Amino acid sequence: MTGGAGAAPTPPPAGTGNGPAVSRREFDALFARVRAWGRWAPADRGAWNRVTPEHVRRSAALVRSGTAVALGRPWNTAAGPDNPTPALHYMSDLGDIEPPEPATHKDFIGVDYHGKAVTHLDALSHAAYRGQLYDGRPARECVDAGGARFGAVPALGPLVTRGVLLDLPAVAGCGWLEPGRAVHAGDIASAERALGVTIGEGDAVLLRSGSVRRRREAGAWDPGTASAGFHVDAVPLLAERGIALLGADGDNDVRPSPVDGLHSPVHALALVAMGVPLLDNLDLEALSVAAAETGRYAFLLVVTPLDIPGGTGSPVNPVAVL
């Protein structure tokens, strides 16, 4: 694992910098291996069903100092290589036209949040593989111009659970993982040992690659071309542990994709096969510092997506409480 300041990366070809290339046949076998269809009711909450009130109580017991750390990125209204569709923010009322007292100030916001710049949650309707959503539901029958009728974000509701930070740069003693670096199952196991934490049933696993720090120190690049993230060979371990949520400071997938003809294989495995919602584009820098200071890489995590009928996800600002 490497890290440091430098120019925008030249992405490695698939099957080199991010590990061995994976054929579609191999991927489909992996998909079948981790598939969890027909396991839960309601189905469109997927693996979120693993989080019971007892799990919430145990997670709340992790709070010691009461320090709350926000994990969302700032609202990004500037276009750039990692933000081709900037968010909108403008003032709709400045209180300057003979207002009654007290004067009010209002603003408008808007966003196409499924991208590389906005911290957001992917609901189960966000991705389909071979024409199917999670639980084998036909995507064309479940999602149309009016939104999603299965796997929409309101089915999830708020999530309060145990979060686990896999801080790979901290383990490696570097600033960040270079874009294109894949995180394999062995990296997860090594991080658990080094950080003194073990992923368990109902947990939310958060991967820090240091991409936010790299952007701050080395400048923006196109993360759709090269980004650090999970390799598909890490997914069976996460499935065996019974996670409820997966997140990262990128969009979870290593890029370039190691799977031939499939641009977001971890999205397909997590959302479609396993029913595990995803958190994309987190800012885990402050949490990394707090975890290092306390020596604790498990914490209470609170995620509250917006209630958007038919929505395939939601902008979010998750909070970790230590």
Rank of each mutant, 00 (worst) to 15 (best):
V254S: 00
V235D: 00
V205I: 12
L269F: 07
V232P: 03
S211F: 11
A270K: 09
A189S: 14
D203S: 10
L282P: 13
G275D: 03
L279K: 07
G202Y: 02
V212M: 15
D253T: 01
A226E: 08
S209K: 04
A248D: 11
N252R: 01
F230Y: 05
V205F: 04
V254T: 10
H267K: 10
H231E: 13
V266K: 08
A189W: 06
P258G: 02
L278D: 07
L207R: 01
I188Q: 05
D222K: 02
G261I: 04
S209F: 07
D280P: 01
S227N: 09
S264M: 05
I199S: 01
F230N: 11
V197A: 09
D253V: 01
V276M: 11
R208T: 09
L246K: 07
R214C: 10
M274R: 06
L206V: 05
V232E: 07
E192K: 05
V235Q: 00
I199R: 03
E201R: 11
S211D: 11
H263Y: 12
L282K: 10
S211E: 15
I199Y: 01
R208M: 13
D253Q: 00
L271S: 10
L238I: 12
A204G: 03
A239F: 01
D283H: 12
R208G: 10
L282C: 06
P236Y: 12
D222R: 06
G196E: 02
T198A: 08
S190A: 15
R213Y: 14
G261R: 01
F230S: 05
A220K: 08
W221D: 04
E217F: 12
G202F: 02
L279Q: 00
L271H: 08
R193G: 01
A220E: 13
W221Q: 01
E240I: 10
A234C: 00
G200S: 09
L245E: 07
D233Q: 04
T225L: 15
I243N: 03
L238K: 11
D233K: 10
G196P: 02
V259T: 05
L207A: 10
P256A: 00
L237W: 14
L262Q: 05
L269M: 04
H231C: 08
R255A: 02
L284P: 06
G247F: 10
I188T: 09
